[in-house]
Every structure is written in structure tokens, then in C-alpha cells.
Measured scan of single mutants.
Amino acid sequence: TEYKLVVVGAGGVGKSALTIQLIQNHFVDEYDPTIEDSYRKQVVIDGETCLLDILDTAGQEEYSAMRDQYMRTGEGFLCVFAINNTKSFEDIHQYREQIKRVKDSDDVPMVLVGNKCDLAARTVESRQAQDLARSYGIPYIETSAKTRQGVEDAFYTLVREIRQH
């Protein structure tokens, strides 16, 4: 089974770092803004072998026109913010609204991801993020692309959301 996953969120929150940590098991430290990259990885989730087709997208506003296209083809979405960047957390709402509009559905598989949880300088409390996820009816997972904490959990949870859909 193949799953088309799309990673969305503001610029600099760590979308590529999360994806590369999942696929290649290493942490990319330097920031190089993405336009669009796709990665494929075969994994076993709950005993089922599946192929993850992951689209890593641009957070930069100037590429926002490309969003409709990949939102149409994606089956599930990782909505990523950084726990030390309140603005990126506030941006999640717009991504969710755009996904709902493009998919013409209120019920699209999504996982809210709070990345950079290895950093002490948190400005978005776990509780705020949990409340937001609960209001959307989606899971919330904290990750660190640096330490790998929660990385597999985030992507695998999204696959489970798609399966249950």
C-alpha cells in the first residue's frame, strides 16, 4: 500500500529536517529553504509493509500558489509548527483551512506536530497545542528532528489516521 503524505507549515519550522531524519536517519543542521522535494521510503507499520511517498513543501509565502496542487494529491498532512515560534503555531489554522477548502472536506487525515521540542526556549505550551488538536479532532505529537524523538511516531500516526479514514 502506498501513502501520499504531505508536510506543511511555516518556513523554518523543520519540515525538511523531520523528513530527512525519518528517511535518512540524520539531522540536517543548516537551513536551506525548500521549494519542493519528495522522498520515498518502505516501512512496516503495524505489520503492514507500506511505501511512504512524502512531499516536503515550501513554507515560504512566495510558493503558496503551489499549495493547491499538492493538497489535492496528498492523502494525509503533517501540519508542523516549531514550539519556539508562536507565529508558526498561529499559521497552522490557515494551512488547515486551505487543506479543507482544496479537499472540499472537513475530515482530512492530519496530525499536528510541534517540532524542536529539544529546545528550552518554548513559547507554545503543550497544552495550547493539545487544545488546538482536540478542537480539530486530530492527534498532537511533539518531535525533535535533532534527537529523533517522536519522528517515526508522527509519520506513522498519520498513516494510521489515513487507514482509519
Results as ranks from 00 to 15, higher is better:
residue 53 D to L: 02
residue 40 R to M: 08
residue 164 Q to S: 13
residue 34 T to S: 06
residue 138 I to Y: 01
residue 39 Y to Q: 00
residue 139 P to K: 05
residue 81 F to M: 05
residue 147 T to P: 05
residue 146 K to W: 15
residue 17 A to I: 06
residue 134 R to Y: 13
residue 19 T to M: 05
residue 73 T to M: 07
residue 18 L to F: 15
residue 102 V to G: 04
residue 61 E to A: 13
residue 5 L to C: 06
residue 132 L to D: 03
residue 142 E to V: 03
residue 64 S to P: 12
residue 101 R to W: 04
residue 62 E to N: 15
residue 86 T to V: 11
residue 89 F to V: 14
residue 149 Q to R: 05
residue 4 K to G: 07
residue 32 D to T: 05
residue 147 T to G: 12
residue 59 G to T: 02
residue 42 Q to V: 09
residue 66 M to I: 15
residue 37 D to R: 03
residue 71 M to P: 03
residue 119 L to H: 08
residue 40 R to Y: 07
residue 130 Q to T: 09
residue 26 H to N: 14
residue 148 R to F: 14
residue 101 R to S: 03
residue 116 K to S: 15
residue 147 T to V: 05
residue 105 S to N: 13
residue 163 R to M: 11
residue 89 F to P: 01
residue 139 P to D: 03
residue 109 P to M: 07
residue 106 D to C: 06
residue 19 T to F: 00
residue 90 E to N: 13
residue 1 T to N: 13
residue 90 E to P: 03
residue 50 C to E: 07
residue 145 A to R: 00
residue 120 A to F: 08
residue 161 E to P: 01
residue 148 R to T: 12
residue 158 L to Q: 06
residue 25 N to K: 14
residue 154 A to C: 09
residue 68 D to A: 03
residue 54 I to G: 05
residue 84 N to M: 06
residue 47 G to N: 08
residue 108 V to N: 13
residue 44 V to L: 12
residue 61 E to H: 13
residue 136 Y to I: 10
residue 98 Q to N: 03
residue 119 L to Y: 11
residue 70 Y to E: 03
residue 8 V to W: 11
residue 22 L to V: 14
residue 46 D to L: 11
residue 9 G to P: 02
residue 45 I to N: 09
residue 157 T to C: 10
residue 84 N to Y: 14
residue 151 V to Q: 07
residue 7 V to H: 01
residue 142 E to R: 04
residue 73 T to Y: 15
residue 163 R to N: 13
residue 162 I to L: 14
residue 21 Q to F: 05
residue 91 D to M: 15
residue 41 K to W: 03
residue 120 A to G: 13
residue 26 H to E: 13
residue 134 R to Q: 12
residue 50 C to M: 12
residue 142 E to S: 03
residue 92 I to S: 05
residue 122 R to A: 14
residue 96 R to F: 09
residue 17 A to W: 08
residue 33 P to D: 01
residue 88 S to P: 06
residue 146 K to P: 12
residue 129 A to H: 08
residue 51 L to E: 15
residue 143 T to C: 14
residue 133 A to T: 03
residue 124 V to L: 09
residue 18 L to G: 03
residue 157 T to D: 05
residue 26 H to W: 15
residue 140 Y to F: 07
residue 149 Q to C: 13
residue 5 L to S: 01
residue 160 R to F: 03
residue 12 G to I: 15
residue 20 I to P: 01
residue 67 R to M: 13
residue 2 E to L: 07
residue 84 N to S: 13
residue 156 Y to F: 03
residue 129 A to Q: 04
residue 153 D to G: 08
residue 160 R to T: 11
residue 78 L to A: 05
residue 58 A to P: 06
residue 135 S to E: 06
residue 8 V to Q: 02
residue 42 Q to A: 12
residue 147 T to L: 10
residue 114 G to H: 00
residue 124 V to Q: 04
residue 72 R to V: 03
residue 56 D to W: 07
residue 153 D to E: 10
residue 9 G to A: 04
residue 109 P to D: 01
residue 150 G to D: 11
residue 146 K to Y: 07
residue 93 H to R: 13
residue 152 E to S: 11
residue 30 E to L: 08
residue 61 E to S: 12
residue 26 H to P: 02
residue 111 V to R: 00
residue 33 P to L: 05
residue 117 C to K: 13
residue 114 G to A: 13
residue 6 V to G: 03
residue 37 D to S: 04
residue 106 D to N: 13
residue 119 L to M: 14
residue 59 G to D: 05
residue 129 A to L: 14
residue 7 V to E: 06
residue 94 Q to H: 15
residue 101 R to K: 09
residue 100 K to A: 10
residue 158 L to K: 03
residue 114 G to N: 08
residue 34 T to Q: 03
residue 93 H to C: 12
residue 82 A to M: 13
residue 151 V to G: 10
residue 116 K to L: 15
residue 116 K to P: 00
residue 51 L to S: 13
residue 134 R to C: 15
residue 83 I to D: 06
residue 59 G to K: 01
residue 88 S to F: 07
residue 20 I to M: 04
residue 72 R to F: 01
residue 47 G to K: 09
residue 162 I to D: 02
residue 37 D to W: 02
residue 131 D to V: 01
residue 43 V to C: 10
residue 41 K to R: 12
residue 81 F to Q: 00
residue 81 F to D: 01
residue 119 L to G: 15
residue 110 M to T: 00
residue 164 Q to M: 05
residue 18 L to C: 10
residue 32 D to S: 06
residue 6 V to K: 04
residue 29 D to G: 13
residue 119 L to R: 10
residue 109 P to H: 08
residue 127 R to A: 15
residue 97 E to V: 06
residue 80 V to Y: 01
residue 8 V to L: 08
residue 50 C to R: 07
residue 12 G to A: 13
residue 101 R to A: 05
residue 77 F to M: 02
residue 34 T to L: 03
residue 109 P to N: 05
residue 20 I to H: 13
residue 48 E to T: 08
residue 37 D to C: 04
residue 33 P to E: 09
residue 91 D to Q: 15
residue 35 I to P: 03
residue 17 A to L: 02
residue 33 P to Q: 06
residue 143 T to V: 15
residue 165 H to Y: 11
residue 21 Q to Y: 10
residue 164 Q to C: 05
residue 59 G to V: 03
residue 132 L to N: 06
residue 59 G to N: 00
residue 94 Q to S: 13
residue 84 N to R: 02
residue 88 S to I: 01
residue 75 E to C: 09
residue 118 D to C: 08
residue 4 K to W: 03
residue 125 E to F: 11
residue 15 K to D: 05
residue 143 T to E: 00
residue 145 A to F: 01
residue 138 I to W: 02
residue 37 D to H: 01
residue 32 D to M: 03
residue 105 S to D: 12
residue 148 R to H: 15
residue 4 K to T: 08
residue 97 E to N: 14
residue 53 D to G: 04
residue 122 R to Q: 08
residue 60 Q to C: 12
residue 145 A to Q: 03
residue 129 A to W: 10
residue 151 V to W: 04
residue 120 A to C: 13
residue 60 Q to H: 13
residue 49 T to V: 10
residue 35 I to Y: 11
residue 83 I to P: 12
residue 106 D to V: 07
residue 104 D to A: 12
